[in-house]
Simulated assay, not measured.
Amino acid sequence: MIYGIALFPDKEVQDAANSWRIRHDPHYCHIPAHMTLREAEEWDDVKLERAVKHLDAVSASFKPFEVTFNRVSTFFPVSNTLYYALEDPSQVDNLHRAICSGPGMQQPYNYVYTPHVTIGRKLQEEELHDLYGNLRMTEIRLSSYIDRIHLLYQTEQGGWTAYQSFQLKG
C-alpha cells in the first residue's frame, strides 16, 4: 500500500487554498489542502509498523506550534506549481528532518524540501505567470495551529485518507 505523511492546516487556510485548488490543482478531489512531510511510497507491513513507532516517538518530542503563510510562491522553472509559502518554515522543516531520519525512513530527494500548501499544479506556463503575477501582489496572512502529524494511505480510487494521527506532545 502507498503511504505518506502530512500536516493539515486549519480550516481557514484550507478554505483559502481550496478556493484556488478547485480550478488549478488536479489533486483537489483526492486530498485536502496539506503540507507534505514525507513523500508517498509503497510500504509493506514491517515498514508500516516501524513508521508508526517512529512517528509516535517524533510526536512525543515536538510541541504544537503555529505557522503563518505570508505569500504565494512558485517552483517554476522546475515545476509549474503555485503555493502558499511559510513566513518561517523552520519548525516544519525540523519536523520533516526528524521524521525522515528514523530507521528505514530516509528517503533520497532530488530537491530541497520546502514546506508549503499547493494552490495550483501542472499549470500551463502562461497561466502560471498570470496567476503568480497577480497573487504575489496580494497581501496574505494566514495562520494555522499545528498539533498533529497524519500518516495517510492512498485508496484504490486514488484518494488519500488517514491511517493514524499522532498528536504533538513534546
Rank of each mutant, 00 (worst) to 15 (best):
Gln106Ala: 11
Thr81Gln: 04
Ala6His: 11
Ser143Ile: 02
Ile5Cys: 10
Thr68Ala: 11
His150Cys: 09
Arg21Ala: 01
Pro64Gly: 06
Phe62Thr: 03
Trp20Gly: 05
Leu55Lys: 02
Val13Asp: 07
Ser79Leu: 11
Glu49Lys: 13
Tyr145Met: 15
Tyr109Gln: 13
Val58Pro: 05
Ile119Tyr: 00
Cys29Pro: 07
Ala162Thr: 14
Trp43Gly: 05
Thr155Glu: 14
Trp160Met: 10
Ile5Tyr: 04
His54Phe: 06
Lys47Tyr: 06
Val92Arg: 02
Asp25Tyr: 00
Thr81Asp: 09
Ile99Ala: 12
Pro32Arg: 02
Arg136Cys: 11
Leu82Gly: 07
Ile146Thr: 08
Gln124Asp: 14
His34Phe: 03
Gln167Asn: 11
Glu127Cys: 04
Glu39Ser: 15
Asn80Asp: 12
Ile146Asn: 08
Ser143Leu: 04
Asp44Trp: 01
Ala16Cys: 13
Met1Pro: 07
Gln106Lys: 15
Leu82Arg: 05
His24Thr: 00
Lys53Arg: 15
Lys11Arg: 10
Gly104Glu: 12
Lys169His: 09
Tyr145Gly: 10
Leu168His: 10
Ser144Gln: 05
Phe8Cys: 10
Glu139Phe: 04
Ser61Thr: 06
Tyr109Thr: 09
Glu41Leu: 14
Ser61Ala: 15
Glu12Trp: 00
Arg23Cys: 09
Tyr3Trp: 08
His96Gly: 06
Pro77Met: 04
Tyr111Glu: 14
Val13Leu: 06
Leu151Phe: 12
Phe62Ile: 08
Gln167Tyr: 14
Thr74Arg: 01
Val117Cys: 05
Lys169Gly: 10
Thr118Cys: 06
Arg148Ala: 02
Gly104Gln: 13
Pro26Ser: 10
His30Tyr: 13
Gln164His: 14
Glu12Ser: 13
Gln106Met: 09
Tyr163Val: 12
His54Gly: 03
Glu12Pro: 05
Ala40Phe: 08
Thr138Leu: 10
Asp147Met: 09
Pro77Cys: 09
Glu125Lys: 08
Arg38Tyr: 03
Gln91Asp: 15
Thr68Phe: 04
Arg71Cys: 04
Asp130Gly: 06
Gln124Ala: 13
Arg38Val: 08
Arg21Gly: 04
Tyr84Glu: 06
Gly133Ile: 06
Gln107Leu: 15
His116Tyr: 02
Leu86Ala: 05
Ser101Asp: 13
Phe166Leu: 13
Thr68Ser: 09
Leu142Asp: 02
Asp10Met: 12
Glu87Ser: 10
Leu168Val: 14
Gln14Leu: 03
Ile140Trp: 10
Ile99Asn: 03
Ala57Trp: 08
Ala57Gly: 08
Asp10Phe: 00
Pro89Ser: 15
Asp45Cys: 10
Val117Trp: 03
Lys63Asp: 12
Met35Thr: 03
Arg21Phe: 00
Ile119Trp: 01
Ile22Trp: 01
Phe65Ala: 00
